[in-house]
Design a protein around this nucleic acid. Structure first.
Lengths: 291, 291
DNA sequence: CAGCATCCATAACAGCCGCTTATGCTCTGG
DNA sequence: CCAGAGCATAAGCGGCTGTTATGGATGCTG
């Protein structure tokens, strides 16, 4: 049974005549008449009695009308819901972000989105870039904020990487460390210090920079957590490199921070599945994050 | 939004891939692919993310799927219900019948219908022919059992009259009436008796027959009710003409009944709106009544 | 009571939707 | 690295789905 014909039948029942339904539908009368004939043939019994002055439903017709109404309701609700989603009157985005972004960039973006579109829900999951990409691939999130040190962080096909901005990486030493008082501080100056590194990517970046500077750092502590790392530095247990956003999110009073081009930059950006940018709520959050 | 495309979308979501849905639908993959594109264009956002190995729903897609499922349910229920109606597994017929038919022919037909199709409901309204035709025209009943004295009882266009059978009309006199003992009894013999007549049609028939017999009857009592009429006759308050079915429905012990060709015949039959014979339950009852 | 308006059905026709075939691309897995 | 599976696109064609044209039946109305 063709649902389109069911809706035409409904229009006829509603209008009380075939001609009336045709006017309502913006069609000609024979078009409606033919559809009705086809519908009656497909269901095998008369749905309406033709008489002068209009039509009247038979018992099967009345039964069918109930279903046709329900069908129209579902269709209408579907249109309404999608219109809401498209107009950002409601929606949901599942976002993954690494900790320091989750503490700085992301809250600002969510607040901006909420002010413009109060009924868009954002579900945030904190995850380091590799894990965030896994979540994306598994379909557990729609969007991920990740960082990279220059290279393309995405290796899986089907994912799209959009870099947003670079942030300088800073050298962090204890506040009472002698190096902190130097006018020009280079990595080389800290070749003999114990080093603290973070996740695999950050660790690789540190090792690379140090190698360029001509030494191999002694890695004493490992932690992803920029609060932990700064506390270690603050009490003199080592030195480290941290991107600006981590220091923006949390700044221990007893550390000294030095930015310099030689410490490199970290790029952060957005990753989403191909096509996800077509989803209104996701696109809206992307705009907020890009702003 | 085209409901057909909604169902195609549902098939894709269900199959997990466009190719799979195409196989389920017995179509080729591009056909489904094109419908999806059209659907996504019409709703204005991506409904599914294409990836190697299949597709995955977006948030709008998941929302839409709920509606598509509901739509499919309604469509399926509509098909089921109409199939039931067509197969006479359920249904309803509203029937009007004049009293003596309602007491004889109709109960037999309803019983026959019930034995064959237990879930067809028959709603009986007792009504004399003119009123029955009004009920038909007003759409309050689907079928009417009416009688006539030879002429076509239907004057309204859009109604179809199907005579079923004729039944002899009998002369009814009191059991102790002298006329009852005559070998050959004619109307002429009762020219001086008080007469009892029924409804307008029956009355006209009686007057016509008497006029043919050469006299004008003195109409003393008027009643549609064949029990009332026979009781009047039984106590000697008059004579009357009654069709055989009225005497089959009720036969007072103290009346004498004489059938003769000269008393005429009454034809009973069925009237329904044009097209109503296409309604399964109505057609089934018509068959029972005609049997 | 004729005449007109309304309603429905049918026939014939035309355009476009909708499905097919054909082809190319990407990604996966052995 | 080469099938195998999945999806997109282009092009073509058949048939569905509209249209116009016409006729019959009913009912209102002057």
């Amino acid at each position: 049974m063709d649902p389109k014909r069911l809706l035409i039948f409904r229009a006829v029942a509603r209008a009380g005549s075939i001609s009336g339904a045709a006017r309502d539908l913006g069609w000609t009368q024979p078009a409606v008449s033919q559809h009705l004939r086809a519908l009656e043939r497909s269901v095998g019994c008369a749905l309406l009695l033709r008489g002068a002055g209009g039509v009247e439903l038979t018992e099967p017709g009345r039964v069918l009308l109930v279903r046709a109404d329900a069908l129209a309701v579902q269709l209408h609700m579907a249109e309404e819901e999608l219109a809401d989603l498209s107009a950002l009157r409601r929606g949901r985005v599942r976002l993954a972000a690494y900790p320091s972004a989750a503490a700085t960039l992301v809250p600002r973006a969510i607040a901006g989105l909420r002010s413009r579109h109060p009924d868009i829900d954002v579900e945030l999951t904190e995850a380091e870039p590799p894990e965030a990409l896994d979540l994306l691939n598994a379909g557990d999130v729609d969007l991920a904020v990740v960082f990279s040190y220059g290279d393309d962080p995405v290796d899986t096909p089907g994912l799209r990487w959009t870099p947003l901005a670079g942030e300088p990486v800073a050298l962090v030493v204890g506040a009472d460390h002698a190096a902190g008082r130097r006018k020009r501080l280079t990595l080389r100056d800290l070749a003999d210090e114990p080093w603290i590194v973070g996740c695999a990517r950050c660790r690789a970046h540190t090792l690379l920079l140090c190698a360029d500077a001509g030494f191999e750092p002694r890695v004493r502590h490992i932690s992803d957590d920029y609060v932990v790392v700064q506390n270690l530095v603050a009490v003199g247990l080592g030195v480290t490199l941290l991107p600006r956003s981590a220091l923006e999110a949390y700044r221990h009073p007893d550390v000294t921070v030095r930015e310099h081009a030689s410490f490199g930059t970290r790029t952060y950006g957005i990753v989403h599945r191909e096509g996800a940018e077509q989803v209104p709520a996701t696109a809206a959050l992307v705009r907020e994050l890009s702003a």
